[in-house]
Design a protein around this nucleic acid. Structure first.
Ligand SMILES: [Zn+2]
Ligand SMILES: [Zn+2]
Ligand SMILES: [Zn+2]
Ligand SMILES: [Zn+2]
Lengths: 151, 151
DNA sequence: GTTGTTATGTTACAACATATCATTTCTAAA
DNA sequence: TTTAGAAATGATATGTTGTAACATAACAAC
């Protein structure tokens, strides 16, 4: 059983536990993200699926599927790049905390990581001082990855 | 002389000092942002200008003008919201540092502020540990403003 | 005044995203 | 096992954001 298959099965069980279903189409979209080493746009996934599976994926469906996968925490939406990535913790059993992302603006490679509690705490304090409140702790930063920075 | 007029003159002098020109069209787009209490999309500015000035502003022109105004640091582009705001320091003489933004996802009001040096420092260190590097210190956070949070 | 540069006009299109209503598939109760 | 309701997908249209490419106009320097 390939690693991809293992991850998909794990994801399927997890959905089932949540009372939702990881359908064939949803699996195929998720596979597209799992096999990519960089963030993909919804339309890139449409193209990928149409080419790979010789089946019709309408953009509308892909957006709906991505929304579902995001709710299930299998996928993250990067608001700064209008792109999607598979969760790096997708095969883990631990509960997922709100992640932060470093996005390479050159090649779209993404690092999903967790900023330290203390740093996050000081950000939140400074936001509160400005009389705003965070709607999400998901923070996205435009970066260069190692290889793009070297080039 | 109204406050708006003062700011526009100040901006004009500043452009002149930089060897660029704050043309009539550019002034009008900038005025739109100065008179708004929230971030506007390029197309909202197109509509605003067309209605207010009985003159044709093509979307293309507005995008070019916004790019110019951003270069001159008179305006900031919010990548997280695909919107634009006038710089809150537009009437200041001090040199502008890279700002951070809190964006209300409900009403698009924006707080331009500066995160503390030490917090920014720890963010940068953690980014470096992940072998990425920031392309910009402009950080944008999705928030609720005071009044939207209350409602 | 000619000439090179900057700004704007114009058209077309690419890329990203949602609204709406119809149809199919699945689930679970009768 | 049928059947009603829910969930998923299909299909079409449209809205929103942004850029490419080439033409013309305005301006400044010589
Ligand atoms: Zn994750
Ligand atoms: Zn890269
Ligand atoms: Zn500013
Ligand atoms: Zn608000």
């Amino acid at each position: 059983m390939s690693n991809l298959q293992k991850i998909l099965s794990h994801a399927e069980r997890q959905c089932h536990a949540n009372g939702s279903r990881l359908t064939e189409k949803r699996k195929k979209v998720l596979s597209g993200l799992l096999q990519s080493d960089r963030a993909l746009s919804a339309y890139e996934l449409v193209d990928y699926c149409n080419k790979t599976y010789d089946e019709t994926f309408a953009a509308m469906s892909v957006y709906r599927i991505l929304e579902f996968l995001e709710q299930e925490q299998l996928v993250h939406k990067l608001n700064l790049a209008n792109r999607y990535v598979a969760c790096v913790h997708i095969a883990c059993d631990h509960q997922h905390e709100v992640p932060q992302f470093l996005i390479c603006t050159d090649c779209q490679r993404v690092k999903e990581f967790s900023i330290s509690r203390s740093t996050l705490g000081s950000i939140k304090r400074q936001v509160e001082q400005a009389r705003f409140q965070l709607v999400s702790e998901q923070i996205e930063l435009n970066c260069l990855c190692g290889s793009c920075a070297a080039a």
